[in-house]
């Protein structure tokens, strides 16, 4: 980014101030990281920040939004809709495009792939996805964790995360959401599904405790950097 952005970008989504973390600057196109959803987001926070640091070393600035209702966001989680998350990702892409004058490389992890088609195509250089999942799978896992936890108190109906029911405007559209459009697909070596590239590392999004894998963060940053360079030349 020729004009370095503040470390925290402020955006207005649905009338509220929301925040995105910004790391690095440089003349190359910036990367917008779209985090996984729910618990996986927390388990991958360290990984995403490590990827941002590595991208900065490669001369690429990056942004990581706190999706509405998560992280620093003041929006109550129980009120969040899928459209709020998609609006946040779209606004971040527009902000990076305006700040750098270059179209943005969007790199999503897991359920983040369900949000990465939200930006206006004029803001987007290309898309990169790590082990994308469908919305139905995300909901299924939330439900399983809820049932296995066997918590006391009145049973909550429908999808619940950390004791808070998902708003109908989140659970409903998420159930039928699938990653849309073309993207470079990256998976871990043990994952048998089709991929454009396989990296060595651990599925930190599954870890019972948040973990760190610096070698994987570096491999991810390098692959995003190469992909972004290819998109810029095409």
């Amino acid at each position: 980014m020729t004009t370095p952005l503040a470390e925290v970008a402020r955006l207005t989504i649905a009338g509220r101030e929301e925040y995105a973390r910004i790391v690095g600057s440089g003349d190359a196109a910036a990367v917008l990281l779209v985090p996984p959803l729910f618990g996986e987001m927390n388990r991958c926070r360290r990984l995403m920040v490590d990827v941002m640091t590595e991208l900065a070393t490669l001369g690429r600035g990056s942004a990581l939004p706190d999706l509405p209702g998560t992280g620093e966001s003041l929006m109550p989680f129980g009120a969040v809709t899928l459209d709020d998350w998609r609006a946040m990702v779209a606004a971040c892409a527009a902000l990076l495009h305006a700040a750098t004058g270059r179209t943005v490389m969007i790199a999503s992890l897991r359920g983040g792939a369900l949000l990465d088609d939200a930006p206006d195509p004029v803001d987007v250089a290309g898309r990169w996805r790590m082990t994308p999942v469908e919305g139905a799978t995300v909901l299924r896992e939330l439900g399983r964790a809820q049932r296995l936890a066997g918590t006391s108190g009145p049973p909550l109906s429908g999808a619940v995360f950390a004791g808070t029911p998902l708003a109908p405007g989140l659970a409903g559209p998420l159930g039928s959401a699938r990653p849309q459009g073309s993207a470079r697909i990256v998976r871990l070596g043990e994952d048998g599904k089709n991929a454009d590239e396989r990296l060595t590392g651990s599925p930190l999004w599954r870890r019972a405790e948040p973990g760190r894998d610096l070698a994987m963060a570096l491999a991810i940053a390098r692959d995003i950097d190469r992909t972004a360079a290819t998109c810029a030349n095409s």
């Binding site: 399983r144 936890a149 599954r206 870890r207």
Partner: peptide, 18 residues
């Protein structure tokens, strides 16, 4: 100690996936 109910959910989902 690592295997609590959240971990069981993650473990089963990963096994299903693979």
């Amino acid at each position: 100690p690592e295997l609590d109910s959240m971990a069981v959910a993650g473990l089963l989902t990963e096994i299903e996936d693979r």
